[in-house]
């Protein structure tokens, strides 16, 4: 807490009380009951299922993507109209996997060096 300001110390004490309670519960999240996802595919594939004039249709989409020759194996989900979404960029809704991978490169591969250095260091130890 900055500067020994007694107002801040009082606030710090109140926050410490919250953390002690969180620690006493082994840092478990509350309301965390797990539910099964409602859609998605197997082995990284996306599955779109629909009926048209009484015919049941199933479209399975699976991408094989490399970046700089290295596999990029995250799951890209295809929506009904062909737009795609990706869990790691939860607000992106783009027309193709090409656009999504561009966004991944912009936001991760091209992140500032102080981020990339931290990520590299962690990978080297794990």
């Amino acid at each position: 807490m900055a500067g020994g300001d007694p107002r801040m110390a009082d606030g710090a004490e109140r926050l410490d009380q919250l953390i002690r309670s969180f620690a006493s519960g082994d840092y478990a999240a509350d309301g965390i009951e797990h539910y099964h996802g409602g859609h998605g595919g197997h082995d990284g594939a996306g599955v779109r299922v629909f009926e048209h004039r009484g015919h049941r249709v199933e479209i399975v989409t699976r991408y094989e993507i490399t970046v700089d020759g290295q596999p990029w194996d995250q799951h890209i989900e295809v929506l009904d109209d062909g737009n795609v979404v990706y869990h790691g960029l939860p607000q992106y809704l783009v027309p193709s996997a090409v656009d999504m991978v561009r966004a991944v490169i912009d936001s991760s591969y091209e992140a500032p060096e102080e981020i990339r250095a931290g990520v590299r260091a962690a990978r080297e130890e794990t």
Partner: peptide
């Protein structure tokens, strides 16, 4: 930082 080159969450 959630790094989407591998999808992991990192602490730096």
């Amino acid at each position: 930082f959630q790094d989407n080159s591998d999808g992991r969450l990192y602490a730096t």
